[in-house]
Simulated scan of single mutants.
Amino acid sequence: MLLVFSVYAEDDRYDSEFLENYAKINLIPEVQRVPGVGDANVLGTDYSMRIWLKPDVMAQYKLTPMDVTAALAEQNVEAAPGQFGELGNQTYQYTIRYKGRLQEAHEFEQIVIKSLPNGELLRMKDIADVELGRLTYNFINSVNGHPAVSCIVYQMPGTNATQTISEIEKQLEETQKTMPPGMKIDVSMNANDFLFASIHEVIKTLLEAFVLVFIVVYIFLQDMRSTL
């Protein structure tokens, strides 16, 4: 793991779903093209249509979650309808067009769950709240109290980590200039920090060892010229 950076909005104008989607579409592809980067991904989830059932309303109509699942399976499908008049002695040939899977929240709201005794149709919007949200809500990212999304960058084997991190930081600086107003990038972990800290400790240890050896030799020889 080379680097971890987060994307957030200083004024909280963007929610986590928007930040995750923006990072996947605009930031990650740019970072993946940097020489030396093996992979980069977002610690988040994709957009998903969330259907929040109302148990009290469902109980009134004697419905179960399985009934809702069955309605979704029947009315939200991908199919190839075909054509009319393709093989017969028809003057005209018609192609059947089918929209396919539903995409918008208002389309899911119109799914028919069942027909009522009075002839009315019970639709999804009558028994549930439908919204476009996250696939899962198992974790939440934040930076200084602001909603955020974190991204992890991995190194390609055999490459120079220090040089790769430097190129990534340059790319992030360039990307920052074209980001929406208020959106910021914060680098929370950099492998160079550990590398430089390790080098500093090695140099410090060598200097301490040199001083100790010099003192020990001087004590035994009792002569500065011989010690040097």
Rank of each mutant, 00 (worst) to 15 (best):
A9I: 00
D12R: 13
R13Y: 04
Y22F: 15
K24Y: 06
I28H: 00
V31W: 01
G36M: 03
V37T: 00
G38S: 08
N41V: 00
V42W: 00
V42L: 08
D46A: 09
D46Y: 13
Y47F: 15
S48P: 02
I51P: 00
L53K: 02
Q60Y: 11
Y61R: 06
K62L: 09
L63C: 07
T69C: 01
L72N: 01
E74K: 11
N76A: 00
A80Q: 12
P81A: 07
P81G: 07
E86L: 15
Q90G: 12
I96Q: 12
K99A: 10
G100W: 06
I113K: 00
G119I: 10
L122N: 05
R123E: 05
M124P: 04
K125F: 05
D126Q: 05
I127E: 02
A128H: 01
E131A: 10
E131M: 08
G133R: 01
L135K: 09
L135E: 14
N138R: 05
F139H: 09
S142F: 03
V143T: 12
N144C: 01
H146Y: 05
A148M: 06
V149Q: 02
M156W: 08
G158T: 04
N160Y: 02
N160H: 05
A161Y: 00
Q163D: 15
Q163W: 08
T164C: 11
E167V: 01
E167S: 12
E169V: 09
T175R: 10
K177R: 15
T178I: 15
P180V: 01
P180T: 07
G182H: 09
K184I: 11
I185Y: 03
D186Q: 14
S188I: 10
N190F: 06
L195V: 14
L195A: 13
F196L: 13
I199G: 03
H200A: 12
V202D: 14
I203N: 12
L206S: 11
L207W: 08
A209S: 12
A209N: 14
F210I: 14
V211D: 13
F214Y: 15
L221M: 14
S226F: 11
S226P: 04
